[in-house]
Simulated scan of single mutants.
Amino acid sequence: MPFVNIKTPEGALSRSQKEEIVHRATDMLVEYFSEAARPHTMVLIEEVKDGGYGRADEIFILPDAYRAKEDG
């Protein structure tokens, strides 16, 4: 079973953006493994809370300008 795990800052993606990522990642894997992989493909989008990730000793907080706008 193909498995994709995407980690993103909490609040960075709207629900519709997450749905699009799931569909596009699934389509990409189907291109490689054939249509038979579609019902078995898992795409997990994990949202990491602000301050829960960093790089080079810097803890990241998602700026308001990069937060997703609510769907609707």
Score class of each variant (00 low, 15 high):
17 Q>P: 02
44 L>P: 04
51 G>I: 03
27 D>L: 06
24 R>N: 12
56 A>T: 10
46 E>Q: 12
36 A>H: 08
33 F>T: 08
41 T>D: 04
51 G>K: 09
2 P>L: 05
27 D>F: 11
17 Q>C: 06
64 D>T: 00
15 R>E: 15
55 R>N: 12
55 R>I: 12
2 P>T: 00
66 Y>Q: 13
39 P>M: 10
65 A>M: 13
46 E>A: 13
27 D>M: 03
31 E>P: 04
42 M>S: 12
72 G>Y: 02
9 P>E: 01
15 R>P: 00
64 D>K: 01
36 A>Q: 10
54 G>I: 09
42 M>C: 11
54 G>F: 05
53 Y>S: 01
31 E>T: 14
64 D>N: 03
28 M>V: 14
70 E>D: 13
61 I>M: 07
13 L>F: 07
4 V>S: 06
19 E>I: 09
52 G>I: 00
45 I>F: 12
27 D>I: 03
61 I>F: 15
53 Y>F: 04
12 A>M: 14
72 G>L: 08
36 A>Y: 06
29 L>R: 02
48 V>W: 00
68 A>C: 04
4 V>C: 10
50 D>A: 06
61 I>Y: 14
35 E>I: 10
40 H>A: 11
22 V>P: 05
40 H>R: 13
22 V>G: 00
65 A>I: 15
40 H>Q: 13
36 A>I: 07
65 A>T: 10
42 M>A: 14
47 E>G: 06
53 Y>D: 03
3 F>K: 02
54 G>A: 00
44 L>D: 05
15 R>W: 04
21 I>S: 07
45 I>C: 12
57 D>I: 14
6 I>F: 01
61 I>D: 11
6 I>M: 02
14 S>F: 11
4 V>P: 02
37 A>Q: 05
65 A>Y: 09
44 L>M: 13
38 R>A: 03
56 A>F: 09
1 M>S: 15
49 K>C: 07
9 P>Q: 08
27 D>Y: 01
37 A>E: 09
11 G>Q: 02
16 S>F: 00
51 G>D: 09
29 L>M: 11
54 G>T: 04
54 G>M: 02
26 T>S: 14
22 V>T: 03
27 D>V: 04
23 H>P: 02
58 E>Q: 14
44 L>C: 05
68 A>W: 01
51 G>H: 03
68 A>V: 11
36 A>W: 03
20 E>N: 06
28 M>R: 12
31 E>Y: 08
64 D>Q: 04
55 R>F: 12
41 T>E: 02
